[in-house]
Design a protein around this nucleic acid. Structure first.
Lengths: 144, 144
DNA sequence: CGGGATCCCACTGGATACTG
DNA sequence: CAGTATCCAGTGGGATCCCG
């Protein structure tokens, strides 16, 4: 979809701007399964459809297909069909895809390393919220 | 929300597993505005609500509030209220938040640097799709 | 200024069944 | 095996108005 945003008329891109196309990349990543697909494919070895579906625990084939199509469309991944029977389709990251995949893996790594602290923060937050319904004592600070 | 997943009963976390709590971190990031908030706050300087709203072009105050609350709950951000009049509220990343923010900034940087290539890939993909409705010639490969 | 309260809808994505 | 086709519920998130 063309949003009518022309790079050359701006001389620069800013992901914070409303109609900047860079936003679309973020929204792609923001899709629930994209990150996992990219990380799963991050080593160069191509993967087949069923293989990916097993790896991404809980994904349905419909949603996986959508995710893969979106990634292919953006040039992050290639889809290769071997006309055998039964069919065999391989997915593999492009160079761009590998770059993004590598960056995203740092996120999943962080997530796995810090999940305990995050959960602790959640529990404390929730408990604090239930004890002090709303009102005073939010987290006020003294004079400024 | 406790999903019933106990870290100690697993001896490890795997973001690919269905009920692994690390998934919740990814889903937080997968929220449309989270990434931008984290990147915007990535330098240590605290920001005020209205300041953030202006920076994140297009966000509504309701959604921004939701996003900020989620980040605070997960311990990535602090919210400090100065009981002045009119009120002044400052948001600032915690150490954890700065870590994630730094990682996410590499994503937005990549996005800004490669958006042209992505757009080109999209146009080619779409054109190819409209010329060959569906059927043969997807991208088949020879023998294996 | 910094939200909370409401209304509401498009779209995501899950479940299920079917096919080349 | 690798999808496509339907159906459908949930909700993310936008618009609008209001309040302390």
């Amino acid at each position: 979809m063309d949003t009518g945003f022309d790079l050359r008329k701006h001389g620069g891109v800013d992901v914070f701007l409303r109609d900047c196309p860079t936003r679309s990349v973020l929204e792609l990543i923001a899709s629930k399964w994209t990150m996992l697909v990219l990380v799963a494919l991050e080593d160069r070895r191509p993967m087949r459809f069923a293989e990916l579906r097993r790896r991404l625990d809980g994904v349905t084939s419909k949603v996986l297909t959508q995710t893969l199509r979106a990634l292919e469309r953006d040039g992050l991944m290639t889809r290769t069909v071997y006309p055998t029977v039964p069919p065999c389709v391989e997915y593999q990251l492009t160079k761009m895809g590998q770059e993004v995949g590598g960056l995203l893996q740092t996120i999943t790594d962080w997530s796995q390393a810090n999940i305990a602290a995050v959960q602790a923060a959640r529990e404390e937050f929730d408990e604090r919220a239930t004890r002090q319904p709303p009102g005073v004592g939010t987290s006020s600070a003294g004079g400024r």
